Structures are given as structure tokens and as C-alpha cells.
Simulated assay, not measured.
Amino acid sequence: MPEAKNGSENGTGKPRRRQARGERRIAQLLEAAASVFCTTGYTAASTNSIAREAGVSPGTLYQFFPNKEAIAVELGDQLLTRWRATYGQAFTSAHLELPLDQLLDAVLDPLIQFNFENPAFGVLMHGPDIPGQVTREHDALHSSMLTRVEEVLAGYLPATPEPEITRVAHMVFAVYKAGMDVVLAAEPAERDAYIAELKTMLFRYIDPLVGDC
């Protein structure tokens, strides 16, 4: 009969204290990587610069990650998990019953806030040399979001043919992404004004279609 594990170990036989210490170190390295990616871009970043930002030696970094790509994959996975949670918060069934202007607030506000709180998301999801696993997962999420936008529009435009719904959804998504680039690049004092402009653009595009229906 195998020996029972004591309170300081789990099923892997590793002391819990050691595991917790390792998890904190991983979180520290990922936070440093996010900062470096935002400052230099993914391509120019290196494991040495990430280790330096984290205040550890490169050898310590290599205990947890074999290379920069592995760090990017782990960070990308965490960011996409947070994005899925935010996306779920934005597209609740209750929001879909709101008037158009209130719907835009309810959907866009959490998405915009996420981008402010996670600046590495845009860098890591749209860079030219991002690991394939990250881009594939991002593309899948992008596709699911586009489908959700189509579903929302279909609810507001019940008499509109499906091809037109798809076309409008693509335009809405393109305006949102382009507008977010401008919002994120704006000076902090100007951000609210640019956010308001983005919502106004979307409202003025969609509202006449809703009115026609």
C-alpha cells in the first residue's frame, strides 16, 4: 500500500511551498515579459531582457521557460483566457435586450477596459513573428467574436438577409479594431473623448439600419 502524502506534499510529490514559490516566479517572469514586449515589441525582446526586467538571472528564467517563444505562448494563453472572460461579460443575454446606444456601452466598455489593463495583448496577438500557437488561438477567438456580432445584429435586424448581416458585422468589427488603435494611442486626457467618438461612429452606422427595419 502506498504511503499517504503528508500535508506538505501533493500528488506529484513536490512540496506545496516549493510549487507556490515556482508559481510566483512564473507570474513574475510573465509580468516582466509583458512589460518588455510592450516596450520593445516581441521580435526585439530577448530572454536576457525579460530576466533583467524581472530582476532575476537568465539561469533562473531557464528553469521555467526554455526560450522566448515558450514565454510568449504561456503569456498569450493567460491573456486569451482573460479576454474570453471579458468577452463573456460583454455579450450577456441581458445586454442584448438593451437599446442600441446602451448596448454599445455595455459591450464596448469591458472590451476597452481590458485593452487598457492588458497592453501586451495587442502586441502579442498582432505582431509579425508571434508563435503560431498564439495566432491560431487568437484567430479562433476572433472568428467566434465575429459570429457573436452577427448574432447580435441579426437580433436587431431580423428582416435583413444573412449575407448583409455578415457584411455589416465585418464592417462593425473593422471599425472597432481601427478605433481601438486610435483610442490606445491617444493621450490619457483624450481617451474618453476618443472612446465617445468610437461609439458614435458605430451608433451612426448601425442605427439607420435598425430604423429601416
Rank of each mutant, 00 (worst) to 15 (best):
T39F: 14
T60V: 13
G76Y: 13
G155Y: 03
V172M: 00
M201H: 04
F116P: 12
E31T: 13
F37H: 06
G211H: 13
G55F: 00
M1P: 10
E31C: 06
E31Q: 09
M201D: 07
E164H: 11
D192K: 05
G132M: 05
L96H: 13
Q89E: 15
D101Y: 06
L209D: 03
N118Y: 10
I71M: 13
R191C: 01
N48M: 04
R191S: 00
I26V: 09
F65N: 05
R191W: 01
L61Y: 11
E137W: 13
T200N: 12
Q78C: 14
Q89K: 07
V134Y: 09
T86K: 14
F91E: 07
A72C: 02
P163M: 02
T166D: 02
L75A: 07
P161V: 00
I130H: 11
K177H: 08
D129T: 14
A33G: 03
A20N: 02
H126K: 09
E3Y: 03
A20D: 07
I50K: 04
E9C: 11
T39E: 05
N67Y: 10
A90D: 04
E9F: 10
A196L: 02
H170I: 14
H170Y: 10
A169N: 06
D129R: 10
R148S: 14
T47W: 02
Q19F: 07
E190M: 08
G179D: 05
G41Q: 04
M1K: 15
A196Y: 03
Y205I: 01
D139E: 15
V152R: 15
E117M: 13
R52P: 11
I130Y: 03
I26C: 12
Q133C: 07
E23T: 10
P163S: 01
P208G: 06
A185F: 04
M145A: 06
R82I: 05
E150R: 06
W83D: 09
E9D: 04
L146Y: 13
P163G: 05
G76S: 02
H142G: 08
Q113C: 08
P15F: 15
T86D: 05
A70Q: 07
A169Q: 14
A85R: 08
A178M: 12
G132F: 08
A44W: 09
T47P: 03
Q89V: 02
Y176F: 10
T86W: 13
G41K: 04
E3K: 13
E74V: 14
D181H: 12
G59W: 09
Y87S: 04
H170W: 08
L202M: 03
G211Y: 15
V152M: 05
L124Q: 03
G211Q: 03
A106N: 10
I112W: 01
N10I: 06
Y156F: 09
T160P: 09
L184G: 00
M125T: 01
R136T: 13
Q133D: 15
P208A: 06
R84G: 00
L75Q: 14
L61M: 00
I50R: 06
H142K: 09
V123S: 08
S57C: 02
S49N: 07
L141I: 07
F65L: 03
V123R: 15
Q78R: 14
L146Q: 11
Q63N: 15
K199G: 08
G7Y: 11
A33D: 01
E197S: 11
I165H: 06
G179M: 12
E97V: 14
G155Q: 11
P58N: 12
V210W: 01
T147Q: 01
E23W: 06
T135R: 10
L153P: 11
G88A: 01
